[in-house]
């Protein structure tokens, strides 16, 4: 097949543009995090001072801990519940399955701010105190649908008799799920968990509606500091650490994946 040269050049150019515009803020963040002065941009002074100061920024450390706790808890709970719900949805007949998925996809499509308002309203209605529990519930709420969306296609790929085959060989329903269904869909579960974790630590808007006094996750803390004009480069240092770490992990993961593929032939 003849290559469409004009088309592929355009694709390459646009791809470069994409990486540039998406990575520019990341580069700026990293640059600020290693520049010695907060206000003087005449000449570059390399420093790692801001990285050391993360530990001294007690408020930031607390917010990081909250963010991680929420992300880990929400991911774990969403993955377990989402898998169970996905199995339930999968066993429905087509018509009801579509109905359930329409409902499931509401939080996915819903703009974060509307989701934030909705949760704000209902938690207020039940007179719950805002803080850790409401933020956790909110994060479970918007990560669950993603787990379900990533588990469901894996369930559809299974031999429809797999569950019955396990029962046939003497497994109870619970044993059949744990020993047969879950091992066969674990790729979908892992993918769902990764998405859930990413969504959770990245979220600002929904968390913002769950805020209460000085209880903050990283996003809401930075936003509140912005309002008070108290942004110090420690925040940028922390953020750069996260980016470099995830990028490293991703490349490592890619490597090990490839060697695995090679070994298997």
């Amino acid at each position: 097949m003849k290559k469409n040269l004009y088309g592929s050049t355009l694709q390459v150019v646009l791809t470069i543009f994409t990486f540039a515009i998406v990575y520019l803020p990341i580069l700026v963040i990293i640059l600020i995090s290693i520049h010695g002065s907060q206000y003087n941009y005449d000449s570059f002074k390399l420093t790692f001072r801001w990285y050391q100061e993360i530990i001294n920024d007690q408020q930031l450390v607390d917010a990081i801990i909250v963010t991680l706790q929420i992300a880990l808890l929400a991911t774990t709970i969403s993955t377990i519940l989402g898998t169970a719900f996905a199995i339930g949805i999968h066993s429905l007949k087509k018509k009801n399955r579509v109905r359930m998925m329409v409902l499931n996809n509401v939080p996915v499509v819903n703009p974060d701010i509307v989701t934030g308002i909705m949760l704000f309203i209902i938690f207020r209605f039940f007179r719950m105190t805002f803080g850790f529990p409401t933020m956790l519930l909110a994060h479970i709420f918007f990560t669950l649908p993603f787990v379900i969306l990533s588990v469901l296609p894996k369930l559809k790929q299974l031999d429809p008799n797999l569950f019955d085959a396990a029962l046939d060989l003497g497994a109870t329903k619970f044993q059949a799920i744990v020993r047969v269904i879950i091992p066969s869909i674990k790729i979908g579960m892992i993918a769902g968990a990764l998405i859930a974790f990413t969504m959770s630590i990245d979220d600002f808007i929904i968390s913002y509606f769950m805020k209460q006094g000085e209880f903050h996750n990283v996003s809401t803390l930075i936003y509140s500091r912005l309002a008070k004009r108290q942004i110090s480069p420690t925040v940028f240092a922390y953020n750069s650490l996260v980016v470099v770490l995830t990028m490293g992990l991703m490349i490592l993961f890619n490597r090990s994946n490839q060697t695995q593929k090679k070994v298997r032939g």
Partner: peptide, 21 residues
């Protein structure tokens, strides 16, 4: 009597072997 307690076993139409085992 639920399926797992019946002394009956099945060879399924497309075998339904457990892919992870």
């Amino acid at each position: 009597i639920p399926p797992h307690e019946r002394p009956i076993n099945t060879v399924f139409q497309k075998y339904a072997l457990f892919p992870h085992l």
